[in-house]
Design a protein around this nucleic acid. Structure first.
Length: 682
DNA sequence: GAAAATCCGT
């Protein structure tokens, strides 16, 4: 009897066996079961197994693996339970099945614990250990990984390529890069194993150490395979070096390696980041031709490309062709719709998802934040807090806190802060900074200060936020003191720090102090002043009634005067009631920003303050016909959970009549009391 | 003589 190599041979062979009435040997049947399983013919594989008059442990293992391959873990488990004599392969197969299935990881662990204690007394071998390492890497369970590692050392199972590469991967994915490196160094003391090298290159990329990754990649580069290339392409793409990723992608083909799903997925993400629609489209057509456009990584990559390029029609078209729900593609589209302000479409997609991960929630809520629909953002966040799952995206909190900050509403900010503490999220530096910033900008400088002072480590950005917070609240002394402390601790201030410091000075009229810091900035810290610093200085002089100094200062600014600087200067003129200088600056400003309605309003305001109604009328006339899309300034009141916003002459509130009746009442009382006082003084 | 494990893509 000959060995069946292809499926066709196998089927022919099987038919002959049945016709001839022979009973194949157990060995031959096992081979056939494996062949059927490899070709996805699970029913045929099982029938053959079922009809075997006698079976050995190979038969059981093969058919169990057939079910695992077909994703049918319950049948695999039933067969596992029925195996008369299990060996390590029986255990390893099912452990691997559970380890790779989301939500069933605990069963893998239980089987691992049971295998050596069970009546079967099956020994854990290298297969068991590498599978378990894979699982702990997936769960980022460093302490389990370490225990497995020491077990491997004890049983001398730590030296093969399988062991070394799994260990590198485990340490890297558990956030312990130095240990990964140690394992790699020790493992490659004799001969370098390619898979281990690839795992180490990937670990370097994960860590952002791209130079190290490249050195490794090019050392012994004769042995590189397509995985090595894909690793580098992905590494560049994930670390913001899209051009290099594309270069490697091209180079890979030149070197004779063919592109696969991994290569396409990575280069697609590079093109998306660059919004390179044309090149992206080429990849699109290429993958369609190759027939791999149904791969979920590829198809969602294409959806992401079109979404990032603002082509939502194409994105929808590609998404509709996908047969299964894909939260990654939906996230891309939500972000895409949010970017064009179409939150209704974004919400439709969000609601269409049966299974929402934290990234989708973050995208949707952040979309509301970005389109300034903060009521919707907070409402959705309330629903987010009520769900059972406990996974988070730090970006969600940063964006929501940002919404509180721009609206200066502290209560929702406090709720977010409380929620962060309640669920015990590992406090990310960026999140803490956002919390401090929120309290600063919402007027709760005391809270901000307390959090700031209790932090063990404080970086530059946090200091900048706190100094700016003090400055905005008129605590110039605290701002300057914190600056000095920061410098004493060895933190180098940056351009942002000086904006905050100069702001502190201008708010309290500390002209000389401000001048000193301004020159110290360049002389002591080699930071070139930017637009904001110049504007700060002009404002500083303006507020201190030193318009002449402002004018002299402005003449020395070595960059082109832009709207911010001129606007600030006009404000300074306004404060010093100097219409002549304002006029000159106005001409310059209108040349730069003739279309910006806000500037006209600012100018008109400057003249109105002077009582120059004719001038104001002139400006208003110039304004007419231009598109004036100034954001309307509004006032708001928080009553209970609702915030009520008002603009001037606003009668849209549902209780506007009652509000105005009350207002009339108050005005009358005010007028009456003024009359009383006048009568008294006479 | 046969069965199980490692690295790369949202």
């Amino acid at each position: 009897m000959s060995l069946a190599r292809s499926l066709k041979d196998g089927l022919q062979f099987h038919a002959q066996v049945i016709k001839s009435g022979f009973t194949p040997t157990v060995f031959t049947s096992n081979q056939l079961i494996h062949l059927y399983s490899k070709n996805g013919l699970i029913r045929e594989a099982y029938r053959l197994f079922d009809e075997m008059p006698e079976r050995n442990v190979y038969s059981w293992n093969t058919v169990i693996n057939a079910y695992i391959k077909a994703q049918n873990l319950s049948n695999a488990q039933n067969l596992f339970d029925a195996v008369p004599e299990k060996d390590s392969v029986t255990y390893n197969s099912l452990i691997s099945g559970y380890a790779n299935r989301d939500g069933f990881e605990d069963r893998a662990v239980r089987l691992f614990l049971q295998m050596q204690n069970d009546c079967d007394g099956v020994r854990r071998d290298e297969f068991t250990l590498t599978t378990m390492l894979n699982l702990t890497a997936k769960l980022s369970a460093l302490s389990w990984g370490q225990q497995l590692h020491s077990f491997m050392l004890k049983t001398a199972n730590d030296l093969s390529g399988f062991a070394v590469s799994s260990l590198i991967d485990m340490y890297s994915k558990s956030g312990s890069f130095p240990d990964a490196w140690t394992v790699f160094e020790r493992g490659s003391s004799s001969a370098v194993d390619l898979v281990s090298k690839n795992a180490m290159v990937a670990a370097c990329c994960r860590e952002g150490k791209l130079d190290l990754a490249q050195n490794l990649f090019w050392s012994k580069h004769q042995m590189n395979d397509s995985v090595s290339w894909n690793t580098m392409i992905a590494g560049f793409a994930q670390n913001g070096q899209e051009e290099k990723a594309i270069e490697m992608f091209k180079c890979m083909a030149v070197e004779g390696f063919s592109w696969n799903e991994h290569s396409f997925a990575s280069v697609l993400s590079a093109f998306s980041s660059l919004k390179a629609l044309k090149m992206g489209k080429e990849i699109h057509s290429w993958v369609v031709k190759k027939g791999i456009d149904s791969n979920p990584f590829i198809s969602s990559g294409i959806v992401d490309l079109y979404s990032k390029c603002g082509n939502m029609n194409y994105a929808e078209f590609v998404y509709l062709k996908m047969k299964v729900e894909n939260s990654f593609a939906v996230t891309s589209m939500i972000v895409g719709y949010a970017a064009e302000g179409n939150m209704a479409e974004a919400r439709r997609l969000f609601d269409s998802l049966a299974d929402k991960n934290s990234v989708v929630w973050t995208a949707m809520i952040s979309g509301y934040v970005k389109t300034q629909q903060s009521d919707d953002a907070f409402e959705l966040f309330r629903q987010f807090m009520e769900r059972d799952a406990r996974d988070y995206d730090a970006l969600l909190f940063i964006n929501l806190l940002g919404a509180c900050t721009t609206q200066a509403i502290v209560d929702p900010g406090k709720q977010i802060h409380a929620y962060i503490m309640k669920v015990g999220i590992e406090i990310d530096e960026k999140v803490v900074t956002a919390v401090v910033d929120m309290y600063c900008k919402c007027g709760s400088i005391g809270y901000a200060e307390r959090i700031f002072q209790n932090l063990a480590s404080r970086d530059l950005i946090l200091h900048n936020v706190m100094i700016a917070g003090y400055a905005h609240h008129g605590y110039e002394y605290e701002a300057l003191q914190l600056f000095e402390e920061m410098v004493k601790r060895g933190l180098q201030p940056d351009a942002v720090t000086f904006v905050a410091i100069l702001s502190a000075c201008r708010h309290s009229g500390l002209v000389e102090v401000g001048e000193n810091y301004f020159s110290s900035m360049t002389e002591d810290y080699s930071i070139l002043p930017e637009r904001d610093h110049y504007a700060c200085m002009i404002d500083l002089y303006g507020r201190a009634n030193q318009l002449e100094k402002a004018t002299v200062f402005m003449d020395k600014i070595p960059m082109e005067l832009d709207a911010i600087i001129l606007g600030t200067f006009i404000n300074a003129c306004k404060m010093n009631r100097n219409v002549k200088l304002a006029n000159d600056a106005e001409e310059k400003l209108l040349k730069i920003e003739g279309d910006n309605g806000a500037r006209y309003v600012q100018l008109a305001g400057a003249y109105a303050s002077e009582g120059r109604w004719d001038e104001m009328g002139r400006i208003m006339k110039k304004m007419r016909g231009k598109e004036l899309r100034k954001h309307t300034g509004c006032s708001w009141l928080q009553v209970g959970n609702r915030r009520h916003t008002f603009i001037s002459n606003d009668r849209s509130h549902s209780e506007t009549e009652a509000v105005h009746a009350m207002l009339d009442c108050l005005i009358q009382e005010l007028v009456a009391s003024i009359h009383d006082e006048e009568e008294l003084s006479q």
